[in-house]
């Protein structure tokens, strides 16, 4: 019996397993080394990805803080000249213009966008699918195209550069972004909730008002704030249409000033004082954009917490 056992032909599976074990043992050192290097490379790449952010922030703080002061923030710009090269004044009207243009664009875009979002969330007809695809593509279109659009349809007929043209361009820019975000938020509302409402005999509109919108609110608000933040930083569309102003223009039918445009203009100025101030303008803009971006996170987090 024992004789037959020992004389058995070698088990191919066992042998293969043995080989694999040996091979694994031989290569384990190399493989772990490669893996460690790989992991190290990934982490290094991640750090590398953050280097530009760090550099931008350091640059903004280093160069921007110096030019920001209370008068800088609330006074009007003045034009430096050869004899008074440092008289650049403030950026009060640019802040005001940015807020007005962005705010009105938001006021026009939000209701339309939320309704479009609702429509996209509730309908799956062919038309809705098509509109959904178009909306998604719109979110990726270069913003300069909207500048061309606003120029042809607002500036040319009005025969004047105006804040209104900027408002129109930014509103069209914002609608797809908000619509997309709110569609996702509306779709995220559990069907059971909707059905419960409908089962109680409520109409669709009632269910929307009473159930869907409140439930989707955090998502909608996040989308709104993010799109406001994005629109606030846009330079390309307003570059073509809002003109230039050195006064407090409260009327959007006139030329206005805006922070991103001022940053662009100052960065190429012949006056060193304005080139230095470009960083102050940029820092102000970044702070305003960050307040909106971070605000959106805070609001949505807070509303979610309150619900649960």
């Amino acid at each position: 019996m024992s004789d037959t056992l020992t004389n058995l032909p070698p088990d191919p599976i066992l042998e293969r397993r043995q080989q694999i074990h040996e091979r694994a043992a031989q290569t384990i050192g190399r493989r772990t080394l490669v893996s460690k290097m790989y992991v190290f490379a990934l982490l290094a790449a991640f750090i590398l990805a953050l280097v530009p952010l760090g550099s931008v922030i350091i640059a903004l703080v280093q160069k921007g803080v110096a030019s920001i002061s209370w008068p800088f923030l609330h006074t009007l710009p003045t034009q430096p000249s050869l004899i008074s090269q440092n008289a650049i004044g403030g950026i009060g009207n640019a802040i005001e213009g940015t807020v007005i243009i962005d705010g009105f664009a938001g006021l026009i875009a939000i209701p339309i966008a939320v309704l479009v979002g609702l429509y996209l969330a509730e309908s799956s007809s062919r038309v809705a699918n098509f509109l959904r695809a178009i909306t998604e593509i719109m979110t990726g279109l270069p913003s300069i195209l909207l500048g061309v659009f606003a120029y042809e349809y607002v500036v040319v007929p009005m025969k004047s550069f105006s804040g209104l043209a900027g408002i129109v361009a930014l509103a069209v820019l914002m609608v797809p972004v908000i619509a997309k975000a709110s569609e996702i938020a509306f779709r995220g509302v559990p069907t059971t909730l909707k059905e419960a409402g409908l089962a109680l005999g409520a109409r669709n509109s009632r269910v929307t008002r009473g159930i869907i919108i409140p439930a989707a609110m955090p998502g909608v608000i996040t989308g709104v704030l993010l799109s406001l933040a994005r629109a606030m930083g846009e330079t390309a569309p307003i570059l073509l249409v809002i003109g230039a102003s050195s006064g407090w223009t409260w009327n959007p039918m006139h030329s206005m000033s805006a922070l991103p445009l001022l940053t662009y203009n100052y960065s190429g100025s012949q006056y060193p004082s304005q080139r230095a101030a470009a960083w102050g303008v940029a820092l102000t803009l970044v702070i305003m954009v960050m307040v909106l971006s971070l605000g959106s996170r805070y609001v949505s987090a807070r509303m979610r917490r309150e619900r649960h």
Binding site: L164, S245, G247, W248, T249, W250, N251, P252, M253, H254
Partner: peptide, 11 residues
Amino acid sequence: AGASATLSGDL
């Protein structure tokens, strides 16, 4: 706003 021509503070 467009219809009202008088602007406060504008140049």
